[in-house]
């Protein structure tokens, strides 16, 4: 029985092999598919909540632009000219072109935008996530316009966050800068915010020098600037915003 059984087994094996060869004979020589390897675990990531709080009396902040990047990308620098995308944000409060520029930059790692303007005393949080492998040298920059002005903005120029552990908090009080791209006329036709309702972006660069400096403040019609459409309510002093960064993951 035993031998016959073995013979039967061999026969069956040959028969199966023949069937297999027959099945393959008319086709290509593709070997049988190897079993799939298990999917690799997703690479670890790090997440940062970036919260901007408006500290001014009557200067809404345009939707915030938040960028996680390495040192090759630069949002703004005192003493340098800004990009057209940045000018668009600083004069008109629209950060779309600015974030498109950042997304196209080889040193950008993640970008995010606020959903709406931030009113005085208000705040908004934007979350950025990067691969953990991108953390060495990682910086965070933030930009937002003071919308009842010609081209004032506040923000953060490359805060170092590489050494932040989960749960760590970094807090900054930021000052008002002048983008240097538009003369400070304080006239409604040049102010996009609710105090003006006028033009935002204009490609002309007609400030004293086409360079970022600190902002010298609002003079206002209440302080003898007869052609100004801004009132003493729109004046501000530094700091103008608080930026709080929390690593959440």
């Amino acid at each position: 029985m035993r031998v016959r059984y073995q013979g039967a087994t061999r026969f069956l094996s040959i028969a199966v092999a023949s069937l297999f060869l027959a099945a393959c004979g008319s086709g290509s020589n593709i070997p049988p598919a190897a079993p799939l390897p298990p999917p690799p675990p997703p690479p670890p990531t790090a997440s940062f909540d970036v919260t901007v709080t408006n500290l001014t009396n009557a200067q809404p902040l345009s939707p915030i632009a938040v960028i996680a990047h390495l040192s090759g990308y630069d949002l703004f620098t005192v003493g340098s000219s800004v990009t057209v995308g940045f000018e668009d944000m600083a004069e008109g409060g629209d950060n779309m072109a600015l974030l498109a520029e950042a997304d196209a930059d080889a040193d950008s790692r993640d970008t995010g935008t606020g959903m709406a303007p931030i009113g005085p005393a208000g705040s908004e949080t934007v979350t950025l996530t990067v691969f953990d492998s991108a953390r060495p040298g990682l910086l965070i920059s933030v930009g937002t316009m003071l919308v009842n002005t010609n081209d004032a903005f506040t923000g953060l120029d490359g805060a170092a966050i590489e050494s932040m552990a989960v749960g760590d908090v970094l807090s900054f009080r930021t000052v008002a800068y002048d983008a240097g791209t538009e003369a400070d006329t304080e006239q409604a036709i040049h102010i996009p915010g609710p105090a003006g309702g006028g033009e935002g972006f204009n490609a002309d660069r007609d400030d004293q020098a086409d360079l970022v400096t600190m902002h010298s403040g609002i003079v206002s019609q209440d302080d003898g600037f007869a052609t100004s459409d801004l009132t003493e309510q729109h004046r501000f002093d530094n700091p103008t915003a608080m930026v709080r960064i929390v690593r959440t993951q």
Binding site: V78, V175, A176, D184, M214, V219, G224, T227, N238
Partner: peptide
Amino acid sequence: GDLDPDAGRSDLNSTVHRWLNPVVR
């Protein structure tokens, strides 16, 4: 400052010669 280049209380221009601290880094 003021906005009158020929008279007024000041020879400075209020839209140019004011500042908010800090002034030097």
